[in-house]
Design a protein around this nucleic acid. Structure first.
Lengths: 142, 142
DNA sequence: TTGAAACCGCAACTAAGTTGCATTAATATG
DNA sequence: CATATTAATGCAACTTAGTTGCGGTTTCAA
């Protein structure tokens, strides 16, 4: 869905299109790197949009509810967000410089998932899978 | 390794065996549920050992360094810890009641890992994989 | 143009985790 | 057993991510 379509769809549902909301949708439609709330505020600032962190937390929550974003956890006590559009993938994160790269798994976890549901009686809604290590640069230059 | 062996091994390395340290090692050797720092403090209190949170943070860090514990991340902004002894496994967490159950994956991610290392030039040190959903109880009783 | 309500910002708060520094206690050695 | 060394501890103050209440502002349909 294009940025414009996303916006139109929200408008149809009765939500308002504010500068902040429009810009956020634009940022996520073009960006590939998962972004934290702090990073979003800084990105907005570069477009001369000042936004309070409370607003961004609320906006991100809204976009999650609308299935426009997905939440990602790198285990460093802050959430990151990226477009829900991109096909399901995982990440590898450099423990030193925090560089992030998308990866696509060969293994298909859906079989495991089915089996786990049967064995545990849980209904699985999602999973997290992230790899950690050192990137080429950080590995070779200590 | 038994609790006693672990303690002996630490003593050999020149570390001291305090009440807190001994009890923590005991807790992790018997418990199966990943525990947060707060939960550890409460568990110690039940054995009449009062411990400052700073101490527990430091102690947990120490035990991680000694490869006695591993850190687990459920994405709720607090770390949990469990014995490093148990064979590599993952968890499924109920989003409602926080119940945790161990799971063992059928898929072998080591092949993926190798491939990812080749493709990205990262050196992978670890990964996280957790499943989230609703347990039987929480699923049926809304 | 205007009013309802969606959205926003501020201030004050919570909770997890960290740091500096002074004190306490485990253990090796005599 | 006495005691010196230093690992371990506790306290207070701090940091950072995220949350809440509430009054003010802006969007947008009618």
């Amino acid at each position: 869905m294009s940025t414009q379509d996303t916006i139109e769809s929200l408008r149809q549902k009765g939500f308002r299109i504010t500068n902040i909301r429009r810009k956020l949708i634009e940022i996520f439609s073009t960006g590939k790197k998962p972004l934290s709330v702090q990073e979003l505020i800084e990105k907005l600032a570069k477009s001369d949009i000042t936004a309070n962190k409370t607003t961004i937390y609320r906006e991100v929550y809204f976009l999650l509810e609308q299935d426009i974003l997905v939440e990602i956890d790198f285990g460093d006590r802050k959430k990151r967000y990226e477009s829900a559009e991109s096909e399901h993938h995982h990440h590898i994160i450099c423990l030193k410089c925090s560089k992030v790269q998308d990866i696509h798994l060969e293994s298909d976890l859906s079989e495991d998932q089915k089996k786990i549901e049967q064995e545990t009686n849980f209904t699985i809604t999602n999973h997290t899978l992230e790899f950690f290590g050192l990137c080429n640069t950080c590995h070779t230059t200590p």
